[in-house]
């Protein structure tokens, strides 16, 4: 499919994803996520690993990946600084659906906090994986024309105001994948991702790249050294 302006929105569904390991490490801690690479350690570590393994197993039947994207001009979106002049930008909204979120809510409501936060983290990691899957499909269509894509930019991250979310939802018929926006510009289901990438021979570099390296919080437990 050609990466052309004015193309009809592309809906993808029925694909499967593996929750992103890196996101899980960030949310739950490296020593709990790297299962099988070492002795499980003490009873506490074993309990947490078991909860994460269960969450990963449960998530398989709870995740329903879907995504939609189209190509617009940078001027059509209220994007981050510098996007207005860009000729071709892919915008995408994707989700893992509602089922996992409802299970998390039930677990936490019943006081099963560890089970709830483990499954929630797996949901976040799966939403990232869905975004990556969609990003990869956009990359492939761009590559077919000898073009490359920038890193992802999302409303509410870095210097893109969360208000820009509304414009993305005006442009993309996200109801086709079951994603809606609350009056406060929040996506429902929560485990959804919206993003834009610049498509070009020489795509722009975003300020938000290498976010950990540029951050001063040296002792942050979520810091990723290799980012």
């Amino acid at each position: 499919m050609a990466v052309i302006l004015g193309m009809k929105p592309v809906v993808l569904e029925g694909f499967s994803v593996e929750p992103e390991q890196r996101e899980l490490v960030k949310l739950l801690g490296e020593r709990h996520v790297r299962v099988g690479e070492e002795d499980p350690g003490d009873a506490k570590a074993a309990k947490i690993k078991e909860a994460i393994a269960k969450a990963l197993a449960d998530a398989r039947s709870l995740i329903e990946p879907k995504g939609i994207y189209e190509i617009v001009t940078g001027g059509e979106i209220e994007g981050p600084p510098g996007f207005a002049e860009l000729e071709r930008v892919a915008i995408c909204i994707c989700t893992i659906g509602m089922a996992l979120e409802e299970t998390v809510k039930a677990a936490i409501g019943a006081g099963r906090m560890l089970e709830g936060i483990a499954l929630d983290a797996v949901g976040s990691a799966a939403a990232e994986a869905v975004a990556r899957y969609m990003n990869d499909r956009i990359d492939e269509t761009a590559a077919a024309e000898g073009l490359r894509t920038s890193c992802r930019a999302s409303p509410g991250y870095g210097d893109w105001d969360v208000g820009g979310q509304r414009r993305l939802f005006d442009l993309l018929p996200a109801e086709r994948i079951g994603v809606t926006l609350t009056p406060g510009a929040m996506m429902v289901p929560r485990k959804s991702v919206s993003f834009a990438v610049h498509i070009d021979r020489n795509p722009v570099r975003l300020r938000s790249e290498n976010s950990c390296r540029n951050c001063d919080m040296d002792t942050c437990p979520y810091r990723l050294d290799d980012e």
Binding site: L27, L28, G29, R31, H32, K44, K47, I48, A51, I52, G111, M113, L114, I117, A118, A121, T219, C220, P221
Partner: peptide
């Protein structure tokens, strides 16, 4: 606070306290 523990450990500590 010192970054020694992650969220799951904080949670099971609180659960045990409860």
């Amino acid at each position: 606070e010192e970054g020694e523990l992650f969220l799951p450990e904080l949670v099971i500590g609180a659960e045990a306290m409860k």
